[in-house]
Design a protein around this nucleic acid. Structure first.
Length: 1040
RNA sequence: GGGUGAUUAGCUCAGUGGUAGAGCGCUUCGUUCACAUCGAAGAUGUCAGAGGUUCAAAUCCUCUAUCACCCA
C-alpha cells in the first residue's frame, strides 16, 4: 500500500508512545551497552496540581533530546520523573476549590480533614501533567515516578532535618520574616515580589520631652548657614505611619550636626503615652528626608537591624492576618509595663511579644484603615509638618490654579498644609497571594546557610560542577557569597511537618531540684501563671519515641514524683496547659503519682517546599534506605536542565543540601534557560491572555513540530520566543522528510531490503558524496549536543535533510534511477535507504514520533528506533574528497545556470543549449561524469564546446573555466547587462578588501600562513571571475 | 542604587577575531514524473552610537544610548 501524503501525527503518536511503553523502552538502563557509563537526569518536579505549560514543554523537550540521544548511544540512562507537593500553591488551589464549592473552610475543617481534601484533590488532578508529558513524547522512567510526599521521601526529608539540627545547621529563633497575611505564613524572600507602587511620604513632628528646645541649623554644601530656628520637635518621615505606634526610638546619623544637640534626649511618641530616645546609627541617610528615621523594629527590615544594634524593644503591632492587634491586656496596662521595660525592667522576648501597645482606638483595624486614622489623628494634634501649599514636594494638586480676579487679595499659595509627598515606593507582594507582605516578628526555623554554602561555592569555582551559560555562574556566586539565613518553616498544613516537640520549661518556675513536689510548688505552677509564662524546651527527632528520652532527662531534676511524670503528646500549647493543670490538680487531691503527666506538643508548622525538593536528587534514588547503594550509580546526576529563575530557589539549595547530607555534588552540569515567551517576547500570563497551550499546539501540528521548534530556539542564553509560524515551519519539515520516504518507496528503495548500519560501498559520485555529507552532519550533531547547543543540532539536521538530501541528493538520484544500469540503480537504492535511515536516527531525539513511524514502516528492524544504535562514523572515514569536490562543482554550475536563466527571463520550461568556452581537466571530468544530471537539473538540451563565446551570450564562470548560454533569441539583454554589472560591482567591493589586506605588509607578517594563502587564492579566483564578467559585458555591448 | 544580559535583513533570531547567515515574510516565475505543508530565482544590512586594541572587529576592551530581567 503506498504511503499517505503526510504523516498523521494525531493518530500515530499515541500508538507509538504506547509501543515504547510496552517495550519498556524508557526503563533505567534500557539499551545500555555492557559496562556503559551512567547518564542521569532528574526531572525538576512540577507541582502536583500543575498542568503542562509552554515552559515545561520546552524544558522537558531538551531533557528528552539528551536522554534519547544518550540512550541510543548505549549509555546507562535514567530519567527520573516525579511531582512536587508544592505546599503553598496546592493549599491555595484546594482552599479556593473549597470556597468555590461552598464547602467548609480550611479552619472549619481542621488539619486532618483538610489534608484529606488535599489528598483527594491530588488523586484527582495529580496525574494530569504526566499524561500531558506523554503527549509530548517524554521518555521518562515512569516506573520510578516519585512524589515529594511519598513515605520514603518524607523519611528522607525528616531525617535530613534531624541530622542538620544535630550538626547545628538548623536553629529556631524569633526573627523578622516576610509574612504573608493571606496565607498567614512566613515566606522566603525569594517568594516576595517587590513592585513599585504609588505611595506617600508623611512628615511628623515628635516633640521633645519636658518641653526642651534646641537650635535647628541647616547649612548648604559650603557650610554656609541657610536656615536656623528654635525647635521643640524632631521631624521624621515615613511611608508607613501606622507603624509609629510601635516605635522604639528615633535614629539619626552620628555625623548629622543638625541633631547633635538632642542625641540621647527623649521624645513623645504621638498618640501614645510613651517617650522614646533619639539614638545614633549608621542607617539613617542625612540627605534623605529630614535625616531622622523612626525605628519600628518589629515591622521593618532595616529598622530591625537598627533596633537589634541599639537594643531597642521591638513591639509587634499586628496579628497574623495583619490587622492591628486586639489581644492581651488593655492599652493602659501594656503601656505601663512598656515604660517599666524602657526604664530597665527585665523582660524576655516572649513577654515583649505579648505586650499589645496598640491604643484601644486602633485595635482590630485593618492596617490600611489604621494608617488613615493615624494620619488624621496626628494632623489633628498639630503634629504634622506643614508647608506652604506652593511647596513643589506636594506634587501638583488641581486646586492650585487660582483665577486672578478672585484671588487677587488672598495669598492662597502661602496657606499651610500638611506635607504629604506623593512618592513611588517599593512594596513587597506575596508571589502567590498577591497581598502586601508584612514584615513580622515570629518564631521560625532557619537553615544557617552560611555554614553550608562553602562546598557549593567551591564546586562551581573549581569546575567540579559547571553552570551553562557561564553568566549563570556569576549570578550564582553573587547570591551565595551574600547568603542570608534560610527560613524553612511555613505556617501551612500541607507539607512535611517539622519533627520537633515542645514541653514546658518547669525548671524555671520551680526553685528546687531535689525535694518532693509540695504545695508551694503546685501553687506556683497553677496559680501564679507559672506554666503560662514559663519558657518552652524543644526536642528534635523523627518520631515521638525518639524525643521522649530527651524530655525525661529534662524533667528529671523536678521535684518527685513530677520528675517521673508520663510523657504524653497533646495537640498544642493550650492543650498542654490544660493537661498539666488537670493532672496536677488531681495529684493535689488524690496524691496518685501514676496519673501525673508531662504533656508535649508537636510544632504545627511544615517545612518550606524547597527544603524537601532540595533533596530531590538523593531522595528519589533511595537515600537513606538500602537501595541507595544500588541506585547511587546515578548520583551525582549528569545534568540538571532548568529555568534560570529557580537558580536560587532550587539549584543552589540542592548544591548546598546534597553536600551537607551526603557530601557529594548533585550534578556535573547545570543547564539554565530562560522563560518561554510569546512571539513578541512578552511573558505569558493568563491576565494578558497570551498563554500558548502546548497541548493545543500538539493537537494542531504534532508533538514533533513543537519539539523541533523548542530545540531550534534553545540557543545558549537566548530569549525563548515561541510562535505558531515557527512550529508550522517545522511541521512542514516533517512533511518534507515524510515525502522523501515516499519518493524512496516509489523507487523501490525498501523492497526486500535488510537494513544495514554500515554505509554501502558506492561507486557513483553522487552516492559517495551524500554518504560523506551524512558523516559530516553526524559529527556536527554530536558536537552540538555535546555542548548543549540544541539549536545548532536542530539547524544542522534541518539544513542536511532539506538542503542536502531533499534539494540535491533526491534530485541528483533521479537520473540514476532512470538509467538502465541495474547495478547503479541497486547501489542508489542501497545508498538512499542508508542515508534515510541515518536521517531517522539522527533526527529521532528531536522528532521521535515521525521517525519511529518511518523506521517501523520501511523495513523489518531488530529494534525500535528509540533503541537503534547511534552511529560513530566520521567525516574522515566517509568523506571522499574527490566526490566532494566534483559535486561541489556540479551544484555550483547548476545554480549558476539557473540563476542566469531566472535573471534574464528565460522561460522556465525551455530547454536551452550550453556552450563550453574553456575548462580544465578536473572540470571536464566532472562535466563528463554528470552530463545527464546537469542537463536535467539545469534544463539544458545540449552541451557543445566552442572556441569563443558568441556575441550576446550570457557568461557563466565556474571553477576552472567558463560556460556560456547563447541566448540571443531568448535573452533579455538589458537584464543580463544589469545582472553582470551588479555582479562586477559586488566583486569589486570584495576585491578591494582583499587587495587592501594583501598589500598591507603587516598582514603577511602577522597573520597565520594559511589565512594569507587563502586570501591570496581567493583574490586570484575573484579576479579571474571579474575578468570573465567584464569580457562578457564587453561582448554584450557589441550587440547592444 | 547594585548585578546580569540584549541591541545584526521587514519580523523572529543564529553567528567567540579572517568573504555578514537562517527561518518566516516579501517580489517574480513554475502544477505529469516524492512533497503547493512544494520547487526555482531575487531583493533587503551604518551588525545601536563613539572611541580603543589588532595585520584584521558584528566578535575583544572603554564609554554612551535604549531595552529586558534579577536583587535591594
Amino acid at each position: 500500500m503506498p504511503m499517505e501524503k503526510t504523516f498523521d501525527a494525531a493518530s500515530a503518536e499515541p500508538r507509538i508512545y504506547a509501543e515504547w511503553e510496552q517495550a519498556g523502552a524508557f526503563t533505567a538502563g534500557a539499551n545500555a551497552k555492557p559496562g556503559a557509563s551512567p547518564f542521569s537526569i532528574m526531572l525538576p518536579p512540577p507541582n502536583v496540581t500543575g498542568f503542562l505549560h509552554a515552559g515545561h514543554a520546552f524544558n522537558h523537550t531538551l531533557m528528552d533530546i539528551l536522554v534519547r540521544w544518550h540512550r541510543m548511544r548505549g549509555r546507562d540512562v535514567l530519567w527520573q520523573p516525579g511531582l512536587d507537593h508544592a505546599g503553598i500553591a496546592t493549599q491555595l488551589v484546594v482552599e479556593r476549590e473549597l470556597a468555590r464549592t461552598n464547602q467548609p473552610s480550611r479552619r472549619e475543617l481542621g488539619r486532618e480533614k483538610f489534608l484529606e481534601k488535599v489528598m483527594e484533590w491530588k488523586a484527582r488532578s495529580g496525574g494530569t501533567i504526566i499524561e500531558q508529558d506523554k503527549r509530548l513524547g517524554a521518555s521518562m522512567d515512569w516506573s520510578r515516578e516519585a512524589f515529594t510526599m511519598d513515605p520514603a521521601f518524607h523519611e528522607a526529608v525528616i531525617r535530613v532535618f534531624v541530622d542538620m539540627y544535630e550538626k547545628g545547621l538548623i536553629y529556631r529563633g524569633k526573627r523578622l520574616v516576610n509574612w504573608d497575611p493571606h496565607f498567614e505564613t512566613a515566606i522566603s524572600d525569594l517568594e516576595v515580589e517587590n513592585k513599585e507602587v504609588d505611595g506617600h511620604m508623611w512628615h511628623f513632628k515628635y516633640r521633645l520631652a519636658d518641653g526642651e528646645t534646641y537650635e535647628y541649623v541647616e547649612t548648604d554644601e559650603d557650610g554656609t548657614e541657610i536656615m536656623r530656628e528654635t525647635r521643640d520637635y524632631i521631624s521624621i518621615a515615613t511611608t508607613r505611619p501606622e507603624t509609629m505606634l510601635g516605635d522604639g526610638a528615633v535614629a539619626v546619623h552620628p555625623s548629622d550636626s543638625r541633631y547633635a544637640p538632642i542625641v540621647g534626649k527623649m521624645v513623645h511618641l504621638p498618640l501614645c503615652d510613651r517617650v522614646i530616645p533619639i539614638v545614633t546609627d549608621q542607617y539613617p541617610d542625612p540627605d534623605f528626608g529630614s535625616g531622622a528615621v523612626k525605628i519600628t523594629g518589629a515591622h521593618d527590615f532595616n529598622d530591625y537591624q537598627v533596633a537589634a544594634r541599639n537594643k531597642l524593644p521591638m513591639y509587634r503591632l499586628m496579628d497574623m492576618s495583619a490587622t492591628m492587634r486586639d489581644d492581651g491586656a488593655p492599652y493602659a496596662e501594656a503601656v505601663e509595663r512598656a515604660r517599666e521595660i524602657a526604664a530597665g525592667a527585665e523582660a524576655d522576648a516572649a513577654e515583649i511579644d505579648s505586650l499589645n501597645l496598640v491604643p484601644e482606638k486602633y485595635r482590630g483595624l485593618d492596617r490600611f484603615e489604621a494608617r488613615k486614622l493615624v494620619v488624621e489623628d496626628i494632623t489633628n494634634a498639630g503634629l504634622a509638618v506643614e508647608v506652604p501649599s506652593s511647596d513643589p514636594r506636594l506634587g501638583q494638586p488641581a486646586q492650585r490654579k487660582v483665577e486672578p480676579e478672585e484671588g487677587a487679595d488672598v495669598a492662597p499659595d502661602d496657606r499651610l498644609v500638611p506635607l504629604v509627598e506623593p512618592k513611588k515606593i517599593m512594596q513587597p507582594f506575596g508571589d502567590r497571594s498577591k497581598v502586601v507582605i508584612e514584615p513580622m516578628l515570629t518564631d521560625q526555623w532557619f537553615v544557617d546557610a552560611e555554614k553550608v554554602v562553602g562546598p557549593a561555592l567551591d564546586a562551581v569555582r573549581s569546575g567540579e560542577t559547571k553552570i551553562i551559560p557561564e553568566s549563570g555562574e556569576k549570578v550564582y556566586f553573587h547570591w551565595l557569597e551574600n547568603i542570608e539565613p534560610w527560613c524553612i518553616s511555613r505556617q501551612l498544613w500541607w507539607g512535611h511537618r517539622i519533627p520537633v516537640w515542645y514541653g514546658f520549661d518547669l525548671g524555671t518556675p520551680m526553685s528546687g531540684g531535689t525535694g518532693d513536689l509540695d504545695e508551694v510548688d503546685l501553687l506556683k505552677l497553677l496559680l501564679d501563671g507559672g506554666m503560662v509564662h514559663s519558657g518552652d524546651v524543644q526536642k528534635v527527632g523523627a518520631e515521638l519515641p525518639e524525643v521522649t528520652g530527651g524530655f525525661q532527662d529534662e524533667i528529671a531534676d523536678l521535684p518527685s514524683p513530677l520528675s517521673h511524670a508520663r510523657i504524653v503528646e497533646v495537640e498544642d500549647r493550650n492543650a498542654a496547659l490544660h493537661a498539666l493543670a488537670e493532672s496536677l490538680a488531681h495529684y493535689a487531691t488524690d496524691q496518685d503519682p501514676s496519673k501525673l503527666v508531662y504533656p508535649v506538643w508537636r510544632d504545627p508548622d511544615v517545612l518550606d517546599t524547597w527544603f524537601s525538593s532540595g533533596l530531590w536528587p538523593i531522595g528519589t534514588l533511595g537515600w537513606p534506605g538500602p537501595e541507595w547503594e544500588e541506585m547511587r550509580r546515578y548520583h551525582p546526576t549528569s545534568v540538571l536542565v532548568t529555568g534560570q529563575d529557580i537558580l536560587f530557589f532550587w539549584v543552589a539549595r540542592m548544591m548546598m543540601m546534597q553536600y551537607a547530607v551526603v557530601g557529594e555534588k548533585p550534578f556535573d552540569t547545570v543547564y539554565l534557560h530562560g522563560l518561554v515567551r510569546d512571539e513578541k517576547g512578552v511573558k505569558m500570563s493568563k491576565v494578558l491572555g497570551n498563554v500558548i497551550d502546548p497541548l493545543e499546539l500538539i493537537d494542531e501540528y504534532g508533538a514533533d513540530s513543537l519539539r523541533f521548534a523548542n530545540a531550534a530556539m534553545a540557543a545558549l542564553g537566548g530569549t525563548l520566543k515561541l510562535s505558531r509560524d515557527t512550529i508550522k515551519g517545522y511541521r512542514n519539515f516533517g512533511t518534507k522528510l515524510w515525502n522523501a520516504f515516499r519518493f524512496a518507496e516509489m523507487n523501490g528503495t525498501f523492497e526486500g531490503r535488510s537494513p544495514q548500519a554500515a554505509p554501502p560501498a558506492a561507486t557513483a559520485t553522487v552516492n559517495r558524496w551524500i554518504i560523506g555529507e551524512t558523516a559530516k552532519v553526524r559529527e556536527e550533531v554530536d558536537a552540538a549536543l555535546d555542548g548543549y547547543r540544541f539549536n545548532e543540532a536542530a539547524s544542522a539536521l534541518y539544513g542536511f535533510v532539506w538542503g542536502r538530501v531533499c534539494d540535491w541528493y533526491l534530485e541528483l538520484s533521479k537520473p540514476l534511477f532512470g538509467a538502465d544500469d541495474a547495478a547503479v540503480i541497486e547501489e542508489t537504492r542501497a545508498t538512499l535507504a542508508w542515508v534515510l535511515d541515518q536521517c531517522l536516527i539522527l533526527l529521532h531525539p528531536i522528532m521521535p514520533f515521525v521517525t519511529e513511524e518511518l523506521w517501523g514502516t520501511t523495513a523489518k528492524r531488530a529494534k525500535m528506533l528509540i533503541h537503534a544504535d547511534w552511529p560513530t562514523y566520521t567525516a574522515a572515514d566517509l568523506v571522499d574528497p574527490q566526490a566532494d569536490s566534483e559535486m561541489g562543482w556540479v551544484i555550483e554550475l547548476i545554480e549558476s545556470v539557473r540563476s542566469v536563466r531566472g535573471e534574464t527571463n528565460v522561460p522556465a520550461g525551455a530547454d536551452v543549449p550550453l556552450l563550453l568556452v574553456e575548462l580544465d581537466a578536473p572540470g571536464r571530468a566532472a562535466l563528463g561524469q554528470n552530463d545527464a544530471l546537469i542537463r536535467r537539473l539545469a534544463r539544458i538540451d545540449t552541451i557543445t564546446e566552442v572556441a569563443e563565446a558568441p556575441k550576446g551570450s550570457a557568461t557563466i564562470p565556474v571553477r576552472g573555466g567558463s560556460f556560456a548560454l547563447p541566448l540571443a533569441d531568448l535573452i533579455d539583454v538589458g537584464a543580463e547587462r544589469t545582472r553582470l554589472q551588479k555582479s562586477v560591482q559586488k566583486l569589486e567591493k570584495e576585491l578591494g578588501g582583499l587587495r587592501g589586506r594583501l598589500s598591507n605588509p603587516n598582514f603577511a607578517q602577522s597573520a597565520p600562513e594559511e589565512v594569507v594563502a587563502e586570501t591570496r587564492a581567493n583574490l586570484e579566483r575573484r579576479e579571474a571571475d571579474a575578468a570573465k564578467l567584464r569580457a562578457a559585458l564587453a561582448r554584450l555591448d557589441e550587440i547592444g
